[in-house]
Design a protein around this nucleic acid. Structure first.
Lengths: 88, 88, 88, 88
DNA sequence: CTGCCATTTTACCGGC
DNA sequence: GCCGGTAAAATGGCAG
């Protein structure tokens, strides 16, 4: 440990500030999203249902990716199963 | 508030103990599950893949229930949409 | 009620897509933040402590904004603010 | 390697189903616990505080068990325990 | 011991 | 204004 003081402090400060900057952007996005829901509601749409729809679409997307990943997993697992299961 | 002391204390104690009892049962179940994974592993199965499979089956089950629920939601929403959207 | 179907559907779709676009950006930000924490960790900082620091700074920021708002409220009440707060 | 397919598949299926059965029981317990918290809340107790209490009691329980174990360890080392601890 | 994953806790948001 | 439910964050545990 050639140095444990000011330099580390500066790095920490840098990390913190970078994160806080991104958190601000995130907060702005959340505000934007909220505004759109509000706008949609004003047009007569049901917010709860919209959230449900978006949630479902997201899940379907996840499932699709999951399926792809699973294929790899199975292929890999099959390779791994040939030997150990032979023990029986 | 006719009484704010011993009686409330007893009720709280009762709630806490009921919860702790259930938590114990939960811990026992977790131990059982862990044991099965361990047993499966000893037989040559890959635990990570097994978890993946179970997770996927659970998601599919969730999706199925979700789909049913969504049908209701949509039917309901359609009933709700007739009027408000007419505003346009 | 000139039309209660396709148009509403299009507007709904538009809302949904706008939200999903923002959600994607949000997810990207979350990933970025996660990466910074990871980087900081690799440099030897304790992530949990960093989160606490950021949380504290955020609370202080909120307090600061509340204090400013309160000040403005008082100044406004005294007619000492150039640009008055929005009428209640 | 008399057989590397169907048998393994059956065993896997058996493991999976046993785990899923236990997971269901676990889910039921979680629901029960949730219900008790809800009931307690309806009686005027603060759920968050209750969770803290339970958490603390659990930690104390762990400490107590550790202390007991340590005591047994010492007693065992001194040959003062009827039923010795399992050999290392 | 490190990283990943599950669980748990916290905060938010719409509804009543 | 509170409540319930839902999504995010954080913590803890577990396998590798």
């Amino acid at each position: 440990m050639s140095e444990g003081g000011p330099v580390a402090q500066d790095r920490l400060k840098s990390f913190i500030e970078r994160i806080e900057r991104l958190e601000e952007e995130k907060a702005a996005l959340l505000a934007d999203i909220k505004e759109i829901y509000s706008e949609a509601k004003g047009t007569g749409f049901d917010v709860k249902t919209m959230r449900k729809v978006i949630s479902l679409r997201k899940m379907e997307e996840n499932d699709r990716q999951e399926a792809e990943f699973l294929l790899d997993t199975y292929l890999s697992a099959l390779g791994m199963l040939e030997r150990p299961l032979a023990a029986e």
